[in-house]
């Protein structure tokens, strides 16, 4: 298995080539360790996708396709990955905030964060502040990610941060907000630690927080 070529093919979103290479790899009966190396090569390809997105070569549609490609790749590798999953670098509780039903951006962030090695607990859409609080209390993540598209999402993000404060949990997590309406001013007003309108950048921020 040429790992560099695999990483490159994932970066170029060449689905045919990636899937063909992986099927061939699995058919040869590799060890678990070899399979983990292949997963890492795919993840490195996703990092290239993120970089190309930041450089304006790729756009949101390409990120969606990249997520789909990675899901399929892992699906093919599953039989040879065994029961052991690779070590996670941190936990993120993620959701689209109350009142908002949009989840495309959230899902892109989720697949990129998972590709970067995070365990992501996805609370779905229209998530009440109380559901964030409950999940944070239960699983003690390093990071809380809130997403939204409508301008009203900013209010709901603030309510959620306030609820985390009231529950005494705010200081135990980093909070990142993302989506069309978020700005520096909104971030300060809400009391989040970081904001982004760019999923790839958001993942990098999270990586810095847990490194």
């Amino acid at each position: 298995m040429n790992l560099e070529a695999l990483t490159k093919a994932v970066g170029e979103l060449d689905e045919e080539q990636v899937l063909a290479a992986l099927k061939e790899f699995v058919a040869a009966g590799p060890t678990e360790e070899e399979a983990q190396q292949v997963v890492a090569a795919c993840q490195a390809g996703m990092a290239i996708v993120g970089d190309l997105f930041e450089q304006g070569e790729y756009f949101v549609g390409d990120l969606i396709f990249a997520g789909e490609l990675l899901t399929n790749a892992i699906e093919i590798l599953k039989p040879v990955l065994g029961g052991t999953s690779s070590a996670k670098i941190g936990k993120i509780v993620l959701g689209t905030v109350a009142g908002d039903l949009h989840d495309i951006g959230k899902n892109i962030f989720k697949s990129m964060a998972e590709a970067a090695g995070f365990e992501v607990i996805d609370l779905g859409i229209d998530t009440p502040a109380a559901a964030f609080v409950e999940k944070v209390r239960e699983i003690k993540p390093e990071i809380v990610g809130m997403s939204g598209v409508l301008t009203l999402a900013l209010e709901a993000m603030k309510d959620t941060v306030d609820a985390l404060k009231a529950a005494g949990l705010r200081d135990s997590v980093k909070v990142i907000i993302g989506g069309n309406p978020v700005t520096k001013e909104a971030c300060e007003q809400i009391g989040a630690d970081a904001f982004t309108t760019n999923a790839a950048e958001g993942v990098k921020i999270c990586q810095r927080w847990v490194s």
């Binding site: 009142g99 908002d100 039903l101 949009h102 989840d103 495309i104 859409i125 409508l150």
Partner: peptide
């Protein structure tokens, strides 16, 4: 097209 919890009509995926 469905109404979110705040009353706003939205278009989900």
């Amino acid at each position: 097209f469905v109404m979110g919890s705040g009353g706003f009509m939205q278009h989900p995926e």
